[in-house]
Simulated scan of single mutants.
Amino acid sequence: MFYTSSYSSPLGEITLASKQNQLIGLWIEGQKYFGELAIADLKYNAHLSVFDLTKKWLDNYFSGKNQTISQLPLAPAGTPFRQKVWDILCKIPYGEVITYGDIAKQIALQNNQAKMSSQAVGGAVGHNPISIIIPCHRVIGANGNLTGYAGGIDKKIKLLEIEGIDTSQFFIPTKGTAL
């Protein structure tokens, strides 16, 4: 059985989704790829323990406290490649950023390959079903480019600022496919 709940955040309304007592989705209002699950299969239940834990985690996060991901029972569904990328995202320290290219190098190393496409990594990052908690907002483009956040660049900037990152060192591209 799949369940849903909602959470009011400084970024807008957030939709949470669970399967039994595991978090499978967290989407910011207006986010691309919102709920790739069949929404009709979700039943509203605001008080499941997984939602209570997640809402407490979000309360602490939005008040500027560094939260550990291991506190939550996460179960994002995705291909093995996406799972590898999301595992790397979970290891990016609070208040730090990494580039798509850096993740591509890590995946290539894991797979004993000479190289990996940064664009493929970007696709996996963009389809992260548990945004904020699996910190895809901590991934930036080369040279400080703030491209590619499914929730919107303005929300990415806000999340980085919550974590104490000086966003003035980054820039928003004026052209590109990942805006």
Rank of each mutant, 00 (worst) to 15 (best):
L42D: 04
F34I: 11
K56A: 03
N60P: 08
A38S: 15
N66R: 04
S63E: 13
D59A: 02
L23K: 05
S70V: 14
I28Y: 07
L42Q: 06
N45E: 00
F62Y: 15
K55S: 14
L48P: 07
K55W: 15
T54W: 14
N45I: 00
L48G: 05
N66C: 01
A77W: 11
I69G: 04
I28Q: 07
A77D: 13
L74R: 03
Q22H: 05
G25V: 11
V50W: 11
D41I: 01
Y33H: 13
A38I: 15
Y61F: 10
G64N: 13
Y33A: 11
L53N: 00
Q31A: 14
E36N: 13
S70L: 14
L74E: 04
K19G: 01
I24G: 09
H47F: 01
E29P: 06
K55T: 15
I39D: 05
G30M: 03
L53E: 02
F62A: 15
L72R: 06
K43F: 08
D59V: 05
F34S: 11
K43R: 07
K43H: 09
N66Y: 03
W57I: 00
Q71I: 04
V50M: 06
E36F: 06
L58D: 01
S70C: 14
S49D: 14
F34R: 14
T68A: 00
P73C: 02
I24E: 07
Q31G: 12
L48Q: 09
G35S: 13
Q20A: 04
Q31P: 10
P73R: 01
G25A: 12
W57D: 02
D41A: 00
W57Y: 02
L53C: 02
L53P: 02
L58R: 00
D52K: 13
A46K: 00
K65V: 08
K43I: 12
A40R: 14
N45C: 00
P73E: 02
P73V: 01
I28M: 08
I24R: 05
Q31R: 10
G35E: 10
W57Q: 00
K65D: 15
E36S: 14
Q71M: 05
A77S: 09
L37I: 12
V50K: 08
L37G: 14
P76V: 00
Q71D: 08
L23H: 07
